[in-house]
Design a binder for these strands. Structure first.
Lengths: 206, 206
DNA sequence: GAAAAAATCATGGAAAAAAGGGAGAATGAA
DNA sequence: TTCATTCTCCCTTTTTTCCATGATTTTTTC
């Protein structure tokens, strides 16, 4: 049986220690190190090539989502598993878009974690049950906004009026109105207040 | 030197394992167990009385903030340290209101964690540097809304119009308008969109 | 290169919100 | 009991949003 080498990227020492403790004596898994930020992760990868990276999506002020993209561009053979407290569609999708092979929540059991590692090491995808369910149910109600709609939405949420938005984007205010209507439709919002709330809770803006 | 007994409540196995690993060989600290939910924590406390509880504020669908309140009511001698990924004023404040003695972020170092434990065991409060800073800076800009204003704000964010809000709360729509004006003033919002966004980001509504 | 999607602009009218003012009743703490 | 706050209500004018409907021009995609 081949051993699978695992590298951990997480800005929480507790989690690193926790994973270490969970996987330490696991047959077939070899922990080859850890990093708490993007720079030291990339530095490690210059010298080593782990089979799997467990990667927290939030790294303090840095982002594991960005790091995932970098890693997959530089070393496509490395399989990345997103790791997070949050069972949120947007995060999961973004990690997958950036080339991750799986997504595991931090409340995962030892069994789930090892299964995830072995699965992605074989080149297949793996999701926590919860994450899988979230992704499934989100796909049905996923809201796709155009570039312009996102811009307008952002400005609306910042408290600009149609006229101000029009001036900002150098378009007519009737055009802004048009985008606004589409936004209300797409988010199924009753009015601006509802729109902003839904946009924020669905993480379309931040 | 007395040993301090520490109990962990966290729904993430990784974190429990991590804290175990971090504190395992620490002089003067004795880990006396852990729980992943409210029920098993309270069950444990019927038999044992740890000096310190490290308590995650989010326990899956349950809340460490609620648990903290229960624990302090039943066993005031137990010192609770809030534990969280989030460096957010509202969480910290709520934990302190519910009787916690400290607040530590999950990216805390071993040193910070042990210091927190020993400090609260002596009956004093302890905050992570980040958490302390957050609390300080938040105090200056804290927004205090009246009961009625909160109600109105909630309904506005749900997309109700003044008239609908008036009917819901059995008040005149001019009264609603009045509350609305006060809300705009207090949150320094330019309009409804801005109001809702600020209310959400400041966690005045959810 | 054709079809689909997105972005642009327009008109006009109804509904809602914002800004400005003022004022009386209820509640609770000092 | 008084003082402060909150909650209540009303008026007017202006601004902004919402809705329906339709059309033209880019841009993207297959």
């Amino acid at each position: 049986m081949m051993t699978t080498s695992v590298f951990i990227v997480d800005d929480h020492y507790m989690v690193i220690e926790g994973i270490n403790a969970l996987l330490h004596e696991e047959q077939g898994i070899e922990l080859c190190g850890h990093a708490t930020n993007i720079a030291s992760c990339l530095a490690f990868l210059k010298q080593h090539r782990p089979d799997v990276i467990l990667m927290d999506i939030s790294l303090g002020k840095e982002s594991g989502i960005d790091l995932c993209k970098m890693v997959k561009e530089l070393y496509p053979s490395v399989n990345v598993i997103g790791l997070s407290t949050f069972n949120q569609q947007s995060f999961i999708s973004k990690m997958m878009e950036n080339g991750a092979s799986g997504y595991v929540l931090k409340n995962a059991t030892k069994k789930e974690l090892t299964e995830a590692i072995f699965t992605v090491a074989k080149g297949r995808d793996f999701f926590s049950n919860d994450a899988f369910f979230t992704l499934k149910s989100a796909q049905q109600t996923e809201i796709v906004l155009t570039r312009r709609e996102k811009e307008v939405l952002e400005l609306i949420a910042n408290g600009l009026t149609n006229n101000e938005i029009a001036q900002t984007l150098f378009i007519s205010n009737t055009t802004v109105d048009s985008h606004r209507s589409h936004l209300l439709l797409k988010l199924q919002a009753r009015n601006t207040a509802d729109l902003v709330k839904k946009a924020l809770t669905k993480k379309l803006i931040s």
